[in-house]
């Protein structure tokens, strides 16, 4: 990992209008950086705006304010986006939460994996689209006999592997995964997270990993950001965050992790977190090297 910043999110803000006057602030003045080759975890409870961040980063939503710099290109700027469209569409890839709906059930697995190449008119490095799909499937641990199957014939874990293979077929530099393991059961979650770790070491892509499972984040990520109501409350290297959480919300979140030991689990106490109604909207401040807390 070097210190080159691949993705720089600056003051990102996104509202969802409910009526003309009321709007939901999904993401509110959020800033973070993602270095090249780093796994950055974004955690937070449901509705804290994690997925909105992912979709803004992937240009699926147009944020109301703020800038997203990818390799120094402002992707929210229409002109800059159009100029670098092909590069942006090939080097950034997205993995969804629910593989049942992110794969078209009327397409065969080999067509799904080869789809990005067909769209971008890239000649597959291994000859045919089919051979390339077989290679990518082997890479994510799937048997080539699945090539002619349809997604509903596969299990959840296998489907998610297909989705990963589709994303990796483009050799991305930035992989955004929006809760990729939330819809899987625990043993499959472990397999997929191990697969991510392995693939990241092989490919060296940067990885924005969104989850609400703290144990998985602790295992996989280099740095973690904690989100609450559309804001980042604490950003720190994983070990530092789990050892010395500073923000009360982070402490509360960490206290909610179940411990696989009945004695200690029974003694575990939840730390409740109440946001003070009049609390000022904190800005991130560096407390110790690389450890930022909202104050």
């Amino acid at each position: 990992m070097d210190n080159e910043i691949l993705l720089d999110v600056q003051h990102l803000t996104h509202f969802f209008p409910i009526t003309k006057k009321i709007a939901v602030k999904a993401v509110d003045d959020l800033s973070f950086q993602l270095r090249r080759g780093e796994i950055f975890g974004l955690v937070g409870e449901s509705g804290s705006g994690k997925s909105t961040v992912a979709r803004c980063v992937m240009n699926l939503y147009r944020p109301q304010a703020g800038r997203i710099l990818y390799k120094g290109i402002d992707t929210c700027d229409r002109r800059a986006f159009r100029k670098n469209r092909r590069m942006l569409q090939t080097t950034r890839q997205l993995i969804f939460q629910d593989s049942a709906s992110s794969l078209n059930q009327r397409m065969r697995v080999c067509d799904i994996i080869a789809e990005p190449m067909r769209i971008q008119h890239i000649t597959p490095p291994r000859g045919t689209h089919r051979a390339e799909a077989a290679f990518q499937m082997h890479y994510v641990g799937l048997d080539p006999s699945f090539l002619d199957r349809y997604p509903p014939e596969l299990s959840g874990g296998q489907r998610q592997r297909v989705a990963i293979a589709r994303a990796l077929a483009m050799e991305p530099e930035l992989l955004v995964a929006d809760e990729p393991i939330a819809s899987l059961d625990v043993s499959i979650q472990a397999q997929i997270v191990n697969l991510f770790k392995h693939l990241q070491q092989e490919h060296g892509f940067s990885f924005l990993f969104i989850a609400h499972d703290l144990a998985m984040v602790e295992f996989l990520c280099d740095r973690v950001g904690v989100m609450y109501h559309g804001r980042l409350l604490e950003v720190a290297p994983t070990e530092e965050l789990f050892q010395h959480p500073l923000h009360p919300y982070t402490k509360s979140l960490l206290s909610a992790i179940p411990i696989p030991d009945p004695v200690r689990e029974r003694a575990r106490k939840l730390i409740p977190y109440e946001e003070e109604p009049g609390a000022p909207r904190g800005t991130l401040r560096e407390v110790s090297p690389d450890h930022f807390v909202a104050e």
């Binding site: 699926l60 569409q89 090939t90 969804f96 992110s102 078209n104 789809e115 990005p116 769209i119 589709r166």
Partner: peptide, 11 residues
């Protein structure tokens, strides 16, 4: 989501 995915891939 598969339509969203295809769009983000540039389809």
């Amino acid at each position: 989501e598969y339509v969203v995915a295809a769009r983000s891939m540039g389809g």
